[in-house]
Structure formats: C-alpha cells, structure tokens
Computed example of a mutant assay.
Amino acid sequence: MCLPFVTFVLATVMLVVHSHGCKDYDLSASDQSLIDMMKHYLHTSRTDECPPQSKISNSGVTFTRWGKNSCPKGADMVYTGQVGGNQYDHRGGGVNYLCLPGDPENGQHQSYSNDQVHGGEYELSSSMKPSGWSESMHNKEVPCSVCYQKRRSAVVMIPGRKTCYKGWNSEYNGYLMSAHKGHFKRDYACVDKNAEPLDKKNGDENGALFYPLRTKCGSLRCPPYTNEADVLCVVCSK
C-alpha cells in the first residue's frame, strides 16, 4: 500500500470522527482499530526510509596518499608501504601505480619472465622538480598510505587546483605527477606537497617513475591556465 494513499485514508477517518455532530460520540472498536493500524503503518514506513544511525556512522571512503607514510588528520590508516608498478620502459602490463603494503604475504617463487611489480622512484633533477622540493629526493623510493575517512560518501582528485570546491573537505594537496612523456603511459597521481622518501637508501634502480608535470598552452586554454607551470592537485571528500 503506497504511503500517500494510507495518509489520505487516515486523514479521512480522523475528519469523519471530529466532524461528527454528537459531542459524546465514542469510536467503535473497528474505527479505533483502523486508526491504530494506519498510525503503525505510517510510523514503520517512515522509519524504513531513514537508514539506521549505525549504518551512517560506519560509512566512509578510502583514498591513497602518494608520497607520505601517514594519513591526514582525522583519517584512519588502513596500511602504509611503498609505491610499486610496472617498469617505466615495459610496453605491456599495468599502467597504474600500486600502493604496496609494508608487510606483504609473499607467494611462491616463479621462474617465468613477466615481472611487473617494481618499486617506484622520484625523478627530480635540478631542472625538473616542483617548487620547494629538495633535489636530494632524486632517485629515492616513494612511500604511500591507504587511508579511510569516516562519515564520507565520495572522494575525488581534482587536477589543477590546491583547494577544494565549496562543500568538499580537503584531505591533502600536492603536485600532479606521472611517467615521462617519452616513456610508456602511466596513470596520473596526486603526490603530497610535503612528500618524503621511503628511506635513506639512494640508488638509481628505476621501476615505476614519478616525474613532475607542467602545462603546455595551445589546446590547453591560457588563460585561465599559464604556460609551463607546475600542475597542482588536491584530494577532496564529502
């Protein structure tokens, strides 16, 4: 039975009762039973329309914080580890960066040749690094964290901005990074503006590489963009 019809029936019953000419009119048993039934139905129907509070409080979203081994304030840590992915010059296989946990459960050794899970390194030469970053992070491995933000229903990475739009909460902001344009394609990743190395080891071992990006005017309209500028990014949730 649809809710508008039930509401109409209940209103009709109440109108008939209150408009009766006798002041001492008593409801019959059947009248009272119908009213009680309608009240119960309306109560239970409206309750079903609202999810229990426990379900709301347990909802949330996950996101990866690239370049950091911690989560933003207010977010819970799912796990932390290091960035992995396919070798920068491999033609086939996956193109996305992976956040590999620091406590893996390793499989059995295999001899076949299809290695696609390498580590990730920053590529930050003096002529190619975001403003404010140290060249000392060049060739260092990249940390990452998978974070859980409670009481959120959506998360989005916005390229070209460092602040979120109205109604959205900033989880972190930084620089948009990916593979070099001369290498094989890689996903774009928003790397934290306060990125850090995984550890103090220093070796040019390659793997899934992170290069800073810059804009190029032409098909990209300038303004509002500017030519050859760092590309900012922000991760937002609501």
Rank of each mutant, 00 (worst) to 15 (best):
G93D: 10
W168N: 12
G94Y: 14
E105V: 04
N69W: 03
Y25C: 13
K39T: 03
V78C: 05
W66Y: 08
V9Y: 06
A29G: 11
F5M: 08
T215Y: 01
E123T: 08
P130G: 03
F210H: 04
C236A: 08
G102I: 06
E135Q: 14
V142S: 00
E123M: 14
R214G: 03
I35Q: 12
E171H: 05
L124P: 04
K140H: 14
A179I: 01
S145K: 03
Y79C: 01
C99G: 10
V191Y: 01
S30I: 13
P52F: 07
G74F: 07
H109Y: 11
P143R: 03
V156I: 13
E105W: 02
Y148C: 07
V156E: 12
S131D: 11
D36G: 11
S219M: 05
Y88K: 02
T62F: 11
N206Y: 07
N227W: 01
C2N: 15
N227S: 07
F8C: 02
N206W: 05
R91P: 00
S57V: 15
C2R: 13
V191H: 00
A208P: 02
K238V: 07
E49M: 15
G74Y: 07
T44K: 10
D230P: 09
S145V: 00
V117L: 06
S70V: 12
M38Q: 05
Q32K: 14
C22T: 08
L34C: 09
H183T: 09
H18A: 11
L232C: 02
M1S: 07
C2M: 08
G218D: 01
V9H: 04
V117D: 01
Y148P: 04
V78Q: 03
M128H: 13
D48H: 05
Y122Q: 10
V61F: 03
M37D: 09
G94V: 08
H20L: 07
Y122N: 08
R46C: 09
L198F: 02
D230G: 02
Q87N: 14
S153W: 02
R186P: 09
H180S: 04
H20T: 14
D24Q: 15
K73V: 11
Q53L: 15
V191W: 00
N173A: 13
P223W: 01
A189H: 05
D230I: 00
S178V: 01
M14R: 12
Y25T: 10
T62W: 05
F210Y: 15
N202Y: 06
D26Q: 15
R65S: 04
V142M: 00
R91S: 03
K166N: 07
L3Q: 12
T47L: 13
G167C: 03
A75C: 15
F5K: 08
C2D: 15
V83C: 06
I35K: 12
N139C: 04
E196P: 08
H90N: 11
Y88L: 02
S134L: 08
T80Q: 11
F184V: 00
M128S: 15
A229W: 06
L232M: 08
K23A: 12
G21S: 14
Y165L: 11
M177D: 12
T80E: 06
L100E: 00
G85L: 00
G174D: 02
T163D: 14
C50S: 10
C2G: 06
Y172Q: 09
Q53M: 13
V231S: 05
H20E: 12
Q108A: 12
